[in-house]
């Protein structure tokens, strides 16, 4: 029996979509007095339960707005679910929104330390792996240039290099396999595939069914925040093909 690393039980995530955004006191007060505040509740996720063992690779399918990214963020710990529980074990490398935490005025070198600390690395770890990160990003020449002068591709490369320098237990991928130019894309795919070999648990969001089939062994389909199908990747992708016809 493989070790269970992720377990979600009845997870639900509710957002309040206020009909008009209230962000100043006067408006709030007027509306409060007129008893005119009403929130439109919106469940981005509802009743999500599943568990993954070590080495499982889960593909998450669904149309836009089905709640895929929200689910990833709940698992990564960015959102706290409104109801239900999320249990996870081990080091998570969230390759979602690479470069959150970059400072544009900081140089590349300074950002390696900053973003590394945001991802929870220790100082010694970053110092040890600094050269590896710089080497992998291929940005040695620009490492002392402020980040605001980087191109978006360069930023993404640096983000990817920092985020993948650890050996995670859980890898969260949100269609980031398409980072940078063709050369770097190949390099980054190799890096991710090498992690697969080490038995990492993967959560993968993609619209490309082929990619999901190639990478994952399990899959779920989300629709309006609920799981409508789950199981083996081949079965689920058949259902998905039916649905999207």
């Amino acid at each position: 029996m493989e070790k269970e690393v992720i377990r979600l039980e009845n997870v639900g995530m509710k957002f309040n979509l206020s009909s008009e955004k209230l962000d100043n006191l006067k408006e709030f007060f007027i509306k409060f007095v007129k008893r005119d505040i009403h929130y439109d509740e919106f469940w981005a996720l509802r009743d999500i339960s599943f568990s993954l063992n070590k080495g499982d690779r889960l593909g998450i399918l669904g149309l836009n707005g089905a709640g895929k990214s929200t689910l990833l963020k709940v698992i990564a710990g960015v959102y706290k679910p409104t109801e239900g529980t999320v249990k996870r074990e081990g080091v998570i490398a969230p390759l979602i929104e690479l470069g959150a935490g970059f400072d544009m005025q900081y140089t590349g070198a300074e950002n390696i330390y900053l973003y590394g600390s945001v991802l929870g690395y220790s100082k010694e770890f970053i110092r040890e792996r600094y050269d590896e990160i710089v080497e992998f990003s291929g940005l040695r020449k620009f490492i002392d240039v402020p980040l605001k002068n980087y191109s978006s591709g360069m930023k993404a490369r640096l983000g990817f290099a920092i985020a993948t320098v650890i050996e995670p237990d859980i890898l969260i991928l949100d269609e980031v396999l398409s980072v940078g130019d063709a050369k770097f894309r190949k390099k980054s795919e190799e890096k991710v595939l090498s992690m697969f070999d080490k038995g990492v648990t993967v959560l993968f969001v993609s619209h490309t069914l082929d990619q999901v089939k190639r990478i994952c062994n399990k899959a779920i389909i989300l629709e309006h925040g609920r799981i409508i199908a789950s199981g083996n990747v081949d079965e689920v992708s058949k259902i998905y093909m039916e649905k999207t016809k």
């Binding site: 005025q105 900081y106 300074e110 330390y113 900053l114 600390s117 945001v118 100082k123």
Partner: peptide, 16 residues
């Protein structure tokens, strides 16, 4: 766990 991050955030404020 977060001492280093706090350190980095403080350093960032001073540096910038």
């Amino acid at each position: 766990k977060y001492r280093f991050l706090l350190n980095e955030l403080v350093k960032k404020g001073i540096k910038l």
